[in-house]
Design a protein around this nucleic acid. Structure first.
Lengths: 220, 220
DNA sequence: TGTACATCAGTGAACGCGCGTTCACTGATGTAC
DNA sequence: TGTACATCAGTGAACGCGCGTTCACTGATGTAC
């Protein structure tokens, strides 16, 4: 873990604040929230622990910055997953024909979920920092808020709005649908990551995720 | 936190192992995993920290016992919620009539979910211990296992089997349905407890839970 | 029924660890005259 | 153009904390004879 400290650079670092956040994020990637230790962050940058206090009031501010950064990455992962074109699956039996527009939107919604869960699996450390106990949430997402902050919640809300517009779900059922959608994706992610499903082998895990997204989209 | 130590009892406690687990569980109830501190547990019981080592090999064994106990309570809460009789809700519009047996089973499934989430809200400390990072999971729940260990997972699996038997879902869709059901319940619980939804006021939270259970049961 | 003795279940002090944070300080930088 | 000086951004040592764990010990218990 503790590499030999970087060779001493110039006395003034120049951009220590960013360097600290960067190093802290790297530690978070590898080891989650518990690995984000102020002293170790300073060590990585090659600076004394006290130096950090010229740029952050305390530890909370540092971890908060890491959290913010990780949340941005999660948002970006979801956006990328949803915008990469995917062929629609064969029409599922038993429910008759559906509108192509609705099906496409549903597919995009599913891709958002896959992006979310995929990020959790590919960046478990960052995912744990985002939802871990350290640091507060920037803004409380609220249904019906006129302008929710950009992020996973807004992407989800917009996709659901689109699905209503495409006729995929009755408008009367729209309010509060973010909750089940988010809960399902988050639930399967966290159960597989840190919960009792963490012992599933990758194939079974894949199945669990697919079943979950299938079911929740069917149920919206 | 640290009350004045209990008055010294007899030199030999008599049932220190149980007393330690009990005290540790009480701390867990109030403060979650982080509150389960060996030294504090010993303090509560009125015994030196070293005494614990005559009954537990190490801290892991102690927290494991607490986890086990909490898991039993969760199981019991679910069982109780599912067995208390509830009148079926008015037939939801739009999907035509359903068999009464299926509807009753669906209702029981929902009650299981409510029991799960209700436990998370009424015993957040214990819930966090169950799913927290400390201590390992007793047994990995696996779909298709012949005899899964008693617990939430088995209750869920049985209810789903019953729903198939009652004709509530096609048998072909049964495999792996535990995952979406569990994920949805767990997801909404953990998002409301420690996640970004923790700022919802109780009424909104109630709505979020209801929507989630509605959607996932509809989607199974 | 009494006594020696092995065993069990406690004590109290200490160890080593790593943390976030503070303190008085000093080296580097840039601006006013 | 050079110099005094305020300000900024580092240093290194230390503080206080609480943790899990170990150690040599001692008091209580129960069993064999």
């Amino acid at each position: 873990m503790s590499r030999p400290a970087a060779e001493p650079g110039p006395y003034h670092h120049g951009d220590l604040a960013n360097a600290l956040v960067e190093a802290a994020s790297a530690l978070a990637r590898q080891g989650g929230p518990d690995a984000v230790v102020l002293r170790e962050v300073a060590r990585q940058v090659g600076v004394s622990p006290a130096a950090a206090y010229h740029h952050f009031a305390n530890y909370q501010q540092l971890i908060q910055a890491v959290k913010h950064r990780a949340l941005d990455l999660l948002t970006e992962a979801m956006r990328a997953a949803a915008s990469s074109p995917k062929p629609p699956p064969p029409n599922p039996s038993g429910h008759g024909p559906r509108s192509a527009a609705a099906e496409a939107t549903r597919q995009r919604l599913r891709a958002l979920g896959e992006g979310y869960v995929g990020f959790a699996f590919s960046e478990p450390g960052l995912f744990r920092v985002i939802f871990g106990p350290k640091g507060a949430w920037p803004v409380a997402p609220r249904t019906g808020s006129d302008n929710p902050p950009a992020g996973p919640f807004r992407l989800l809300a917009e996709a659901l709005d689109d699905l209503v517009a495409a006729g995929g779900i009755p408008a009367g059922r729209r309010p509060g649908l973010e909750y089940p959608a988010w809960a399902a994706a988050h639930g399967i992610a966290i159960l597989c990551l840190d919960g009792p499903l963490s012992r599933l082998d990758p194939a079974d895990r894949q199945v669990a995720v697919a079943r979950t997204l299938d079911a929740i989209i069917r149920g919206l």
